[in-house]
């Protein structure tokens, strides 16, 4: 008995001979932790405030719409799923701008990246995992109101196959959008390590550029020079999203909808731009990690 308690209170070093996870499991742990951190979960109470206020702002209109549709028995939703995302783009952009630094600036600024890269995950797996966390976080942010609307539509007894089609289109477009926005805001945050600069940079890239593009599209449309407006649409994630939604009849109306060839170009640009951002992130993490 005394022997055992002696062992329990032994202050000597104990070796660890239990199981060790492989790279895939470690990456999954990092992914889940990163996803939680974008909502302040597992962090200080203070860091939960902003993401949840923004989520509430992005969801409240959907809740009102659902209430109206269910109570008044409207024959259709006043807004399509894709258009809803387009309408609350300001809030989504703010969420991305504010939370990307959590995943892409902190480790670089405080140099804890070195501690990660001295462990099994490589810089490429690390960067891709971080990007996946932010992409998922953005998808979740858009899907909460989207699926709330869908539930409301079903509750109000609207045609299920119509609703499903609209929902499916929205989900695919949101996937493309989330991947691109996560790449762009991630790269900006990994370069400008001061949180303020990162947020401003992302706001410019998402909100300001999008506003400029929309103005250009409105002007070129009025001047019968739609081609320029369509091409300008390639410059912002939001105009790519709305242009594609318009071309795909997902219920978004733009000044200069792309034709089918241009729509393909929109998709290609979105994919290539996302890939370039992820490659840029890998290079950035590798460089800082070796210092």
């Amino acid at each position: 008995m005394s022997e055992r308690s002696g062992v329990i209170h032994d202050l000597g070093y104990r070796r660890y001979d239990g199981p060790r996870d492989g790279t895939a499991t470690i990456a999954r742990t990092l992914y889940v932790t990163g996803l939680r951190h974008t909502y302040g979960l597992g962090r200080s109470g203070k860091s939960k405030i902003l993401p949840f206020i923004l989520l509430a702002m992005a969801t409240l209109p959907a809740a009102i719409v659902v209430g109206v549709v269910v109570l008044t028995g409207l024959g259709s939703l006043p807004v399509t799923y894709a258009d809803y995302t387009n309408q609350v783009q300001l809030v989504i952009s703010l969420f991305a701008a504010a939370q990307a630094p959590v995943l892409f600036s902190r480790d670089l600024r405080h140099r804890s990246i070195v501690l990660y890269l001295a462990r099994p995950l490589s810089s490429s797996v690390f960067a891709v995992t971080r990007w996946l966390s932010l992409t998922t976080s953005l998808l979740f942010f858009m899907w909460v109101p989207t699926f709330l609307l869908f539930a409301g539509a079903l509750l109000a007894g609207l045609d299920k196959s119509d609703q499903l089609e609209g929902l499916l289109k929205a989900v695919v477009l949101q996937l493309l959008l989330a991947a691109l926005v996560a790449g762009v805001t991630g790269l900006i945050s990994s370069v400008s390590l001061r949180r303020g600069f990162a947020v401003v940079g992302s706001v410019v890239a998402l909100i300001v550029v999008s506003g400029v593009v929309t103005s250009v599209q409105a002007i070129t449309n009025a001047q019968d020079a739609d081609g320029i407006g369509v091409a300008a649409g390639l410059l912002s994630p939001w105009s790519i999203f709305s242009g594609l939604a318009d071309a795909w009849h997902a219920g978004v109306v733009t000044f200069t909808p792309p034709g089918s060839a241009w729509a393909l170009a929109y998709v290609l640009v979105a994919v290539v731009l996302t890939a370039l951002c992820v490659l840029g992130l890998v290079a950035r993490f590798r460089k800082v990690g070796s210092r």
């Binding site: 480790d107 140099r111 804890s112 070195v114 001295a118 462990r119």
Partner: peptide
């Protein structure tokens, strides 16, 4: 990197 530990010379802790 699975088998070694590393303590860098510079600051590397999130505050």
């Amino acid at each position: 990197r699975r088998l070694v530990g590393y303590m860098p010379e510079h600051d590397c802790l999130p505050p």
